[in-house]
Amino acid sequence: MSSESWTPPAVLVAVDLVILTLRDSALNVLLVERGIDPFRGARALPGGFLNNAGEDIVAAARRELAEEANLDAATLHLEQLGAYGEPGRDPRGRVVSVAYLAISPGLPEPVAGTDAARAAWTPVDEALSDTARLAFDHRRILLDGVERARAKLENTSLATAFCAPTFTIAELQRVYEAVWGVALDPRNFYRKVQAVPDFIVPAGNQRTTKGRPARLFRAGSRTELTPPLTRP
C-alpha cells in the first residue's frame, strides 16, 4: 500500500489513574461514579482523554489528578502502569488508555470531576469483589495496579510512599499487611527491615503509642531492596 492511499486510523488516547492510599489500615482506591454515558452510574477509575494533540501523556495524567481528585502530582508517587488498547474496550470508538499508578499517604476526601457524579475512596477488596461493577476494563487495570504495588513492595522502597514523612516500624508493617493482605509477625518484620541497609533511617525522635515510646524513621536513599522482603 502506498503512503498516498493510506489513511491513518482514528484512535483516541486517554489516561486512567489507579490512585492508592491507606485508610483505617486498609488499602483503598479512588473510584468515581460516572455521570455521563457510556456506563452512566457505574464506578470507574478517574481519567479522561488528552486535551489536544500537543498534550504530553504524563502531563495529562497530572492534569487528571488535579481535575478528578484535586491532587498535586508533585506530592505523589506516580509511575506508568501500562497501555490498554483492546478493540471494543470503549463503545465510543477505538480508545487506547495509558494507565498510571499513584500512591500517597493520608489523601483527602476527593471531589468529583466534571464528568463524575461523585468520587469516593473504596476498599480495594470491595472494588474487586464479584458484586462490584466497574466501567470499561477498569477491573483489569485495577488488578494490574494492585499487583504492581504488591510486587514492588518486595523489591523496592515503594512502601514508604504510603507513609508520612516520619513513621514507626509498626506503621510500615501495616502498609505491607494492607497491600499484601496478610498478617506479619512483628519481630520477623523488624528483623527483615533492619537487614536492608538504608531502607529506612532513624528520624532522631520518638512518638508515644499506647503509652510506650516508639522510634520514628524516615525513608532512606535505597530504592532497591537487597535482600528483598518477600511475600509470605
Rank of each mutant, 00 (worst) to 15 (best):
F167L: 15
L20R: 02
A74W: 05
A60P: 06
L27W: 00
E224F: 02
L65Q: 05
L172K: 14
A99R: 12
L172D: 13
G93Q: 10
W121N: 06
D125T: 13
Y190L: 13
S5E: 06
A214C: 09
V146D: 09
G48R: 03
P105R: 12
T166E: 13
R174M: 11
V15W: 03
F136K: 00
A53C: 09
G47F: 03
L65M: 07
V96M: 15
W6P: 02
F39Q: 03
P46F: 00
R222D: 02
A127N: 07
F49A: 06
A59D: 07
V98N: 10
T226F: 05
T75P: 00
A73P: 07
A60M: 05
Y84Q: 05
L27A: 04
Q194W: 07
F189W: 10
P91W: 05
R63Q: 11
F162I: 06
E55L: 07
N205C: 05
R89V: 08
P46D: 01
E171A: 15
G181P: 07
P123R: 10
G220P: 04
Y84K: 09
K152T: 06
A74E: 10
D90V: 07
A149V: 15
A14V: 03
A66R: 04
S221I: 01
A14S: 14
V29S: 03
I169K: 14
V32Y: 00
F167E: 10
I36F: 07
Y84I: 06
A170D: 15
L20M: 11
S97V: 15
F136L: 09
E86Q: 11
V11I: 11
F136H: 05
A42C: 03
R40N: 06
G113F: 01
I103F: 08
L142N: 01
T122H: 01
T21P: 06
E68L: 04
P8K: 13
L134V: 00
Q173L: 15
Y176E: 05
V201L: 02
A44G: 00
I57C: 04
A117I: 03
D37K: 02
Q206I: 11
A44S: 01
R148Y: 14
H138Y: 03
T131W: 04
A214R: 09
A135E: 02
A159S: 14
P228M: 01
G93N: 13
N51E: 12
M1P: 03
E79C: 05
E67I: 10
I57T: 10
F217Y: 15
G181C: 12
A59T: 06
G41Y: 00
I103T: 11
A10C: 08
T75D: 07
T208C: 13
T166Y: 10
Q194L: 09
L184Y: 09
A119C: 11
A195G: 13
F162M: 10
R139D: 03
P105I: 09
V18G: 04
F189G: 11
G85R: 04
T131C: 06
